[in-house]
Computed example of a mutant assay.
Amino acid sequence: MTRGRFITLEGGEGAGKSTQRAALATALRAGGLEVVETREPGGSDGAEAIRDLLLTGGADRWSPRAEALLFAAARADHLERTIRPALDRGAWVLSDRFLDSSRAYQGAGELTDADILALHRIGSADFFPDRTLVLMLPETEAEARAKARDGESTDRIGGRDRAFHRRVADVFARLANEEPARVRAIDASGEAGLVTARLLDALADLLP
């Protein structure tokens, strides 16, 4: 049996990851593929329990190091319980966020990218996606979309200040530039169907 493919959608708040994951899954299923849709933090019973810990409470609920460890633990369970079994049976797995979100959100402050990669090596044995699609939007458009989606109610990470989210966007752009074989920057502006077409183009070399 042919192993499936693991595809991750990344980007800042309001980039349209969840919408595009669903649209991409529909397109791939129409082509005859089994597709599993998942998310981070979450995607397995253990990881969903950790998600509640990570995204609720005050901004200072967790130190940067504790937060990074929790994300790594959730990812390890997600990978073991959901992602690997699906890939082993030949399914394609589409995840709304994975390791590169930790690199952008937790690895651009007190911790370094090397720290996040070390945690990933310990927790998830250096497992990387086959392709990472980073949805890129101008800052003002991303903010408007996030506000339309969430109103005044944001989680403890999404609600951080503009300077933090600007650093996150910079890291995603850097990853796309430094790791072009795996990470592709996708223009997320315009009509949703056009964005989905761009995503499919960026996966063309992996499709059966």
Rank of each mutant, 00 (worst) to 15 (best):
T2R: 14
T2H: 11
R3I: 06
R5G: 04
F6R: 01
L9W: 03
G11C: 08
G12S: 08
E13L: 05
A15G: 02
G16W: 05
G16C: 11
K17R: 12
Q20M: 10
A22V: 14
A25L: 04
A27Y: 08
A27R: 13
G32T: 11
L33N: 14
V35F: 00
E40N: 02
P41M: 04
G43Y: 04
G46V: 14
A47T: 12
A47P: 09
E48P: 10
D52M: 10
L55A: 12
L55V: 15
A59H: 09
D60T: 06
R61A: 15
L70D: 01
L70E: 04
A72M: 01
R75H: 09
L79R: 00
R81T: 13
I83P: 03
I83W: 00
R84G: 06
A86P: 11
L87I: 12
L87P: 12
D88N: 13
L94T: 11
D96P: 08
D96W: 12
D100C: 04
D100W: 03
A104C: 06
G107Q: 04
G107S: 12
E110P: 07
E110D: 13
D113R: 07
D115C: 11
I122T: 07
I122W: 06
A125R: 15
F127Y: 14
F128I: 08
P129N: 11
D130P: 01
R131A: 03
T132N: 08
T132P: 00
V134K: 00
L135H: 08
L137R: 13
L137E: 05
P138N: 01
A144W: 09
R149N: 07
D150W: 07
E152K: 03
D155Y: 04
R156S: 12
G159E: 02
R160L: 14
F164K: 13
F164I: 05
H165E: 06
R166N: 02
R167F: 06
A169Y: 05
V171T: 02
L175C: 01
N177G: 13
E179Y: 11
A181R: 14
A181D: 15
R182G: 02
I186G: 05
I186A: 01
D187G: 12
D187A: 09
G190M: 00
E191N: 07
A192W: 02
V195F: 10
A197S: 15
R198Y: 13
L199S: 08
L200W: 11
L200C: 09
L200T: 11
D201E: 15
L206W: 01
L206R: 03
P208Y: 14
